[in-house]
Design a protein around this nucleic acid. Structure first.
Length: 489
DNA sequence: GATTCTTATCCACAATGAG
DNA sequence: CTCATTGTGGATAAGAATC
């Protein structure tokens, strides 16, 4: 698995080595071999389509031994941003596992390609800043006096750029108070949200805001994953005491994705002591995770109680109004650019899972439109965003359909499986079968089974019948439409 | 209530496609 | 090749419609 070249301690040896050319060549071969392994794994993980679209075009750059940073090149600004956004963590982790010389990865546009200025969507919109999560700079900046840029906080992720709605206002207010108030009323603050709902954004924002009011504050920001890496490194090199001392010197501790700490008993222990020490001094602690503290199984109870003793603020998934507001706010960044209202509406309505995807979709659309010189239109959106759309189509179950249809026609749920053939129950049953075929990927036999074990040809008959009826009967069409609307929201 | 008509259902079987 | 899915035509009996 771990491929090691014959040149282990490169940092020292490479500079004195006479045969430098040879070294470089060997290294390039090693990296290429590692990359072959990694991309094999990713191919399995991501599936063929995603792999060929995003991973395959990646070209290996050089490894900088001083910083341990490996460059990965993509042919376009857009694909670089995309890969950065979606796969940075994965790639980074895979490389760290494959080669101990690689400590960070950097995803860039291939220097050979001309950078299209118009398409430079980064920077303004918070898209493609996953690297900041890594906070590789956080630990390195400990020596200095908390200079903002080196803390690893993404400068675009501030409270000002955080769009609020009813689902996240609570968490935002809590975060703001954590950053502003002189004495924190609660600590730690625990942010709970599914991926892509903005917890990382809030974490960064707290950092920035606190730094504004306390310019000399010492802030620690990192993901729990990163925490683990640092921890293990300190452990290996017998620098634990130093490591502990550093940790306790911070005024504000921001730890992202603490669910990753599950199962690492020793790191948990260390985190626990750090929390206690910082809490006693009235320091501020903020944690973020994708689940409630109680749901972090594998974390010891003492740590759990520390995590939940402050305020646990839940960020609900963005609702449609918030999603629209986010898009509008991003849109002001492309000021002269016209994006029709129905496109915004379409995006806000369909991509519901993940805000990153939402913004990513908008970026992709705009980039594509500019590349091809087309107008941004609803049609273009439907064509270009098929991957995002299919991933976001809410998984509607047959049970859900049956419930909704029964409610709509005011009949009992049991009629879906009953043997009765009265019009009043057969029609709804057939409508439900039709909807099951249209809205789910289930096969005819499977649908038949869900309707009292009916034959698959019965389902086919029902689907065709309702299709036919929708054409000729306006009432039926209206019924189906309103059912579709109900089910898809 | 007895009748004819309509059709929801099941069955047997062919064609097709994924693994 | 095997298995599951889709699709066709036919038979039957449960309801609907008509008297």
């Amino acid at each position: 698995m771990i491929r090691r070249g014959p040149h282990g301690g490169r940092d020292q040896s490479a500079k004195q080595e006479g045969a430098e050319d040879n070294m470089e060549e060997r290294e390039a071969i090693d990296l290429a071999a590692d990359w072959a392994d990694i991309s094999q794994g990713l191919r399995k993980d991501l599936g063929h389509q995603l792999f060929t679209q995003w991973i395959k075009p990646i070209q290996l750059g050089k490894l900088d031994h001083d910083t341990g940073t490996l460059d990965l090149f993509l042919p376009t600004e857009f694909s670089a941003t995309w890969v950065e956004d979606r796969y940075h963590d994965r790639l980074s982790l895979a490389w760290k596992i494959a080669s101990s010389d690689v400590r960070h990865i950097s995803i860039k546009v291939h220097p050979g390609r001309r950078k299209i200025a118009d398409l430079d969507l980064r920077g303004q919109d918070g898209f493609g800043h996953r690297a900041a999560n890594d906070a590789s700079l956080a630990m390195e900046s400990i020596g200095d006096d908390g200079f903002t840029a080196s803390v690893g906080l993404d400068p675009s992720q501030t409270f000002a750029s955080f769009v609020t709605g009813s689902t996240n206002i609570l968490a935002k207010n809590a975060a703001e108070r954590m950053a502003k108030a002189e004495k924190p009323q609660f600590s730690p603050l625990y942010l709970k949200a599914a991926t892509g709902q903005g917890k990382t954004h809030l974490l960064h924002a707290i950092g920035h805001s606190y730094l504004q009011t306390h310019p000399r504050a010492r802030i620690f920001y990192c993901s729990a994953e990163r925490f683990m890496v640092e921890f293990v490194q300190a452990l290996k090199s017998n620098e634990m005491i130093e490591f502990k001392a550093r940790l306790r010197g911070f005024d504000l501790l921001l730890v992202d994705d603490i669910q990753f700490i599950i199962g690492k008993a020793s790191a948990q222990e260390e985190l626990l002591y750090t929390i206690d020490a910082l809490l006693n001094e009235g320091k501020r602690l903020v944690f973020a995770a994708d689940r409630a503290p109680q749901a972090l199984d594998g974390v010891e109870p003492r740590l759990l109680s520390r995590l939940s003793m402050g305020l646990v603020a839940d960020i609900q998934p963005a609702d449609i109004e918030l999603r629209r507001a986010i898009l509008e706010s991003k849109l002001t960044k492309f000021a002269p650019l016209e994006v029709p209202g129905d496109v915004i509406d379409f995006l806000a309505r369909t991509v519901s899972r993940n805000v990153r995807e939402l913004v990513g979709g908008l970026n992709k659309l705009i980039a594509y439109a500019q590349l091809t010189g087309q107008e941004v239109s609803l049609q273009l959106a439907e064509e270009q965003l098929t991957d995002i759309l299919s991933a976001n189509r809410r998984r509607i179950t047959i049970d859900e359909i049956q419930r909704t249809v029964c409610q709509f026609y005011r009949i009992d749920r049991s009629e879906m499986s009953s043997k009765r053939r009265a019009r009043a129950v057969v029609r709804p049953r057939q409508v439900a079968m039709y909807l099951a075929k249209v809205l789910t990927p289930r096969s005819y036999p499977e649908i038949g089974r869900k309707f009292g074990g009916r034959d698959h040809s019965t389902v086919i008959h029902a689907v065709r019948l309702i299709e036919d009826l929708r054409q000729r009967d306006a009432d039926m069409d209206g019924d189906v439409r309103s059912l579709l609307r109900q089910l898809e929201s």
